[in-house]
Amino acid sequence: MATAAPQRTARTQAAGAPDTVDTAAYQHAFDAAVAADERIEPRDWMPDAYRATLVRQIAQHAHSEIIGMQPEANWITRAPSLRRKAILMAKVQDEAGHGLYLYSAAETLGTGRDELLDKLHSGRQKYSSIFNYPTLTWADVGAIGWLVDGAAITNQVPLCRCSYGPYARAMVRICKEESFHQRQGYELLLALSKGTPEQHAMAQDAVDRWWWPSLMMFGPPDDASQHSAQSMEWKIKRHSNDELRQRFVDICVPQAESLGLTLPDPDLRWNEERGHHDFGPIDWTEFWEVLKGNGPCNEQRITQRRRAHDEGAWVREAAAAHAAKHTGTTSGTADTTGETEAERA
């Protein structure tokens, strides 16, 4: 909803009073709300660092949806059956939709979408590194659905209970829609695995290439995770990276068996004592390299995103100019842009 920045209101009202006393009271109310599992809403006071963490995380999530369209859109024009073509188109469309929900959630924190996109385009904000890997065959579309979306869902389901209301609500909607994504990917791989020997090999090759990057999607190990502890305390995050990674591995092992495909990890085996699967070491050097921008597709993804944005500028300008000319029929909305932004800043 509309979000006159609460912080400002609070501080403005407290002008003259010692700022620290006031902040302490607000901080206390905030901490109590989080502790009681209540949701924080846009106009509530919140610590600056909480706001900044949320903007960073929601924006990164939104960017991931938008950049994530590219590796899959890469196959829309080559989908091998009309049924698959329709499914893939609907899926890529959902990702645009999810990006929109998330940018809206980020905007409730006072940062406009243009500003967020600008940060994406200039490399100041990140997106999930997984999308810096290429989709080389049709089976990659299936592997993304099964493993990448599977990992994303494992990460995202707990976010439906995130302490920040708009983010939690966006995630509820997204998770509902995501479940089709994972299933279609699994079904796609199953068809390949049970198909011709060439198709089976294609599926195995895709799983071989996507398995480890999918495990990296849960982020660095807990002892190396920079933001984890504070985010857990704020209930933005509910489970640690390693916990979620383990959960994902445990879910995938029997699913891979049903697919008739193997997961590319010789150390993968059931550990009776732990009640979990053990798995081999993750190549964190690769993770940090891709994160730094040295992945196979980092440059390509951003270049395409920037190009689409730049080439669309004249279209966005035209619509804005048209709205300005026809203010009478558009409830005077054409010139409210500035106000909205100011209010949100």
Binding site: I66, M69, Q70, A73, I76, T77, L82, K85, A86, M89, A90, V92, Q93, A96, G97, G99, L100, Y103, Q304, R307, A308, E311, G312, A313, V315, R316
Partner: peptide, 25 residues
């Protein structure tokens, strides 16, 4: 469908895909 990921604004990604899906149906 060739527009996917290339539209001038995100809202239009969704709109063009809707039309493409109707036509494919």
């Amino acid at each position: 469908g060739e527009w996917a990921g290339q539209a001038p604004v995100l809202e239009e990604e969704v709109a063009l895909a809707n039309i493409a899906l109707d036509l494919l149906g």
